[in-house]
């Protein structure tokens, strides 16, 4: 039984290490910044997730103490990864891409990075009435 537990934990650790390495290797391998944005998500989800699952299994099955801190870290990373990726993409568009390179938004207001926020006349009318 101990051997099965050890194999399970070792499998989690090896998978996590390989995926973390792949995520950072993609960061130097891919050509474009927008492509590079794609690579470290592997390191975030499977890399850190595998390490945290291995840690949870280790402390639950060998030390005999259950803790939910790892799940909190996983949840926090899953929540914050899209926000920071969106911010980095916006930084890249603002610094390196001109408005001519982007496709036409086909709406009355343009891209959020270059144009001001649209104003809604209906909201102002409601404010005057109230």
């Amino acid at each position: 039984m101990t051997l099965v537990i050890e194999i399970l934990i070792s499998l989690c650790l090896v998978t996590a290490g390989v995926f973390g390495l792949v995520g950072s290797y993609g960061l130097i391998k891919l050509k474009d910044t927008m492509q590079r944005l794609h690579a470290p998500t592997k390191a975030t989800t499977v890399g850190v997730g595998g390490v945290l699952v291995a840690s949870m299994l280790y402390f639950l099955l060998i030390k005999g103490s259950l803790s939910f801190h790892e799940l909190m870290i996983t949840l926090f990373l899953f929540l914050t990864a899209p926000v920071s990726a969106h911010f980095i993409a916006k930084t890249f568009i603002q610094a390196e891409v001109t408005e001519k390179d982007l496709p036409d938004p086909e709406q009355e207001f343009g891209w959020a990075v270059f144009d001001d926020a649209p104003s809604y006349p209906d909201d102002e009318g409601q404010d005057q009435n109230s």
Partner: peptide, 27 residues
């Protein structure tokens, strides 16, 4: 990194790798 976005992305990935290293050291 040619652009600043690349450097921010690499720093973000670095933080994630350091979190993994800290948990590994805890084990």
């Amino acid at each position: 990194g040619p652009t600043r976005a690349d450097r921010i992305l690499a720093l973000d990935t670095m933080v994630i790798n350091i979190i993994a290293l800290l948990v590994l050291y805890g084990i």
